[in-house]
Computed example of a mutant assay.
Amino acid sequence: MTTTARIAQLRESIARRALTAAGTPADARILDVQRVGTVFIVATEEPTNRWAPYAVETFRVPAADDTDRDYEPGEAPKIWCALAGWLGAGADEVPGMLAKAAAYARTA
């Protein structure tokens, strides 16, 4: 496996964890994954969603200093925090939604 393929596989694995935390169905297909600063952007297709099968979600990347007072420092589980999202009815809307998400990420 090439380095590029391993990186793509890792990004998809990370995206799947973030989507799961946001309640996205496991059968949603990941179309694109990007990172802009501390924001992770994931585009998906969910064919069973009748009204908006395409989505772009933004997540704050869990940081090492995320804390929860119920845990000792450094032992708290890292939680994906959904920031903003866009929905679309057609695949042609995905590039525009990705552009909006990237612009949002630059200001977040």
Rank of each mutant, 00 (worst) to 15 (best):
T2C: 12
T3A: 07
T3S: 08
T3W: 03
A5H: 15
A5W: 05
A5G: 04
A5S: 02
I7A: 14
I7N: 11
Q9L: 11
Q9F: 11
L10Q: 13
L10T: 09
L10W: 13
R11T: 06
E12R: 07
S13P: 00
S13H: 11
S13K: 06
A15E: 03
A15V: 03
R16T: 08
R17F: 09
R17C: 08
A18R: 05
L19R: 11
L19Y: 08
L19H: 08
L19T: 11
A21H: 12
A21K: 12
A21D: 15
A22M: 13
G23L: 03
G23Y: 05
T24G: 00
T24H: 03
A26G: 13
A26F: 06
D27Q: 14
R29F: 03
I30Y: 04
L31N: 01
L31K: 03
D32R: 01
V33E: 05
Q34C: 01
R35H: 06
R35E: 14
R35Q: 11
G37A: 05
T38L: 09
F40V: 02
F40A: 03
A43Q: 00
E45R: 09
E46F: 11
E46D: 10
P47E: 05
P47V: 02
T48G: 09
R50K: 14
R50W: 10
W51P: 00
W51R: 07
A52H: 05
P53C: 04
P53S: 11
P53R: 14
Y54H: 06
Y54I: 03
A55C: 09
A55L: 05
V56I: 03
V56H: 10
E57C: 10
E57V: 07
E57D: 15
T58F: 12
T58D: 12
F59G: 14
R60N: 13
R60D: 15
R60V: 14
A64I: 01
D65N: 12
D65V: 04
D65Y: 02
D68W: 07
D68H: 10
D68P: 04
R69W: 09
R69Q: 14
Y71K: 10
Y71G: 11
Y71W: 13
E72V: 08
P73A: 09
G74K: 00
G74V: 03
G74M: 06
E75G: 02
E75S: 14
A76D: 00
K78H: 11
I79R: 14
I79Q: 08
W80L: 12
W80F: 14
C81H: 04
C81L: 08
A82Y: 05
L83H: 09
L83P: 07
L83T: 11
G85C: 08
G85H: 14
G85Y: 08
G85S: 09
G85R: 10
W86C: 05
L87D: 07
G88W: 04
A89K: 08
G90Y: 05
G90S: 14
E93G: 13
V94P: 01
V94E: 06
P95D: 13
P95H: 05
G96K: 09
G96E: 07
G96D: 15
L98V: 04
L98C: 00
L98E: 02
A99T: 10
K100P: 01
